[in-house]
Amino acid sequence: MLNVAICEDNLELIDVYRLIFKNYMKDHPEHEMRIVISTGNPTEFENYIKYRSDNNDMFYLIDIEFADSQTKGIDLAEEIRRNDATAKIVFITTHEELAYLTFKRKIEPLDYIKKEDGIKSMNESLYKDLDLTFQRLHELKSQRKKMFHYSLGSRDYTIDVKDINYLETSSSSHKVFLHSLTEITEFRGNLNSIEEEFSNLYRAHKSILVNLDNIHSIDSLNKMIYFNDGSSCEVSRRKLPGLKRQMAQ
């Protein structure tokens, strides 16, 4: 069951959104969903966020600015994120001067919908967002993806293990570098505990953990490992036979 919650200060637009959701329900009878709250009053909405009793997955549709309220959409979204890391949040806005990066970092919204684009485009965006929501919920439930977690500052990050090429410790500080298909990032940690947790990560070097699933080839002569995306890392002579054995399995 997916709960839909709407907060928008224009009452006519609320009706429009409700209609879009109802149509989506009609078109997709296989998905279980319902609108639990649709209000123009941010305080009422905030109360709902704070005191909701069920454990259903949430889909929030929030206007960023409220004309006659001190509360802003971002405050509501931050409140939501504090309690629910997986909630799907979609912002609606008329404001061009939207602090895009700040929102993205603080809230990690699913989408932004611009009112200027018109009802038709809104309709399409919402359909797309709902499709994506159900797809992600499905993935989360069926596959039980193996996720890698780390934290920086007060923020928690997750990354799909299958995207990781290798992890490496820095020589100068207690930092671990994570090399994935699209990003390189660093965080505080040590390889030993990571090695214990993930069976498909292999210690190829004193300071390197490689993801066996992403290895394309091994250059024994130069003691290098090549990954599917073309990137590479070192392997120690002592660990080479073990790695080859693992790969053969």
Partner: peptide
């Protein structure tokens, strides 16, 4: 690397 409290994240 010189600063233990600095962390760099690059993404493409």
């Amino acid at each position: 690397d010189k600063k233990p409290n600095f962390f760099l994240h690059t993404k493409f």
